[in-house]
Amino acid sequence: MIKRLLAALALTATPLHAEEVGSVGVDWVGNDIIIDAIEDPEVDGVTCHIAYFDRSLIDRLSQGNWFEDPSNASIACRQTGPIVIRDIDRGEGGEQVFRESRSIILKSLRVTRIFDEAHQTLIYLAHANELTEGSAKMAISTVPLWDTDWSEE
C-alpha cells in the first residue's frame, strides 16, 4: 500500500512537459485562457496545443472555490517535424502523455494518446479526471501517420 502511494506521489511530482505559448485575458477580473504546447515524449514530430481557463485571484475570492480551476480544455495536435514513434502503448486504452492538476487533490487535466492501427492515426484525447463524479468534458485531435519512422529504441 505504501509503495503504491509513493509511486502515485512520484507520478504527480513528474515535471510537466508543457510550455506556455500564449495567454488571452477574458475579463476585467483577470481570468485568462492559457495556451500550452506539449510535445509527445514518445513520438517525435508531434506537438499538441492545449487551451484552458485559468482563474484569477479575484474570481477565486468572489466564487469561494479557492483551489480549483474548470476542467474544460481544447486540444489540437499536428505534425511539426518528421514523425518518429518509439515504444508506445498500442492497447485500446492508450497511454497518458500529459497531466496537470486542476485542483489541490481531486481533479486533473490529462492528455491520453491512443493508436488507431487500422487507420494509421494517433488520437489525442484531452479529458478531465475527477475522483468524485467523473467528467464528460473532453476534446479530441488526430494526427495521421504518413511516411512514419517506427523506431525500435
Rank of each mutant, 00 (worst) to 15 (best):
P70D: 00
A76D: 10
R60F: 00
D44P: 01
E95T: 05
F115N: 01
T132M: 14
V97C: 08
D69I: 00
G81V: 03
L122T: 01
C48S: 15
V46Y: 07
L106M: 11
S74A: 14
T121W: 01
I123E: 13
K107A: 03
A139L: 03
A76F: 09
T121G: 02
A128M: 08
S103V: 02
V97G: 07
M138Q: 14
D59P: 00
G93Q: 10
D59K: 05
R78V: 10
M138T: 15
W66C: 00
L122Q: 06
G64F: 02
V97T: 12
A76L: 14
G94P: 06
F67M: 12
I83C: 06
T47G: 04
Q79A: 12
S62W: 04
G45M: 06
R86A: 13
F67W: 12
R110V: 06
H119S: 12
G134Q: 09
L122S: 08
V84L: 05
H49N: 11
R60Y: 01
K137V: 11
V46S: 09
E133V: 13
D116E: 12
R110S: 09
Q96R: 14
R60K: 14
M138K: 13
I75M: 10
N129H: 14
K107W: 02
R99A: 15
A118T: 02
F67G: 08
V111I: 15
G64Y: 02
S103C: 03
Q79E: 13
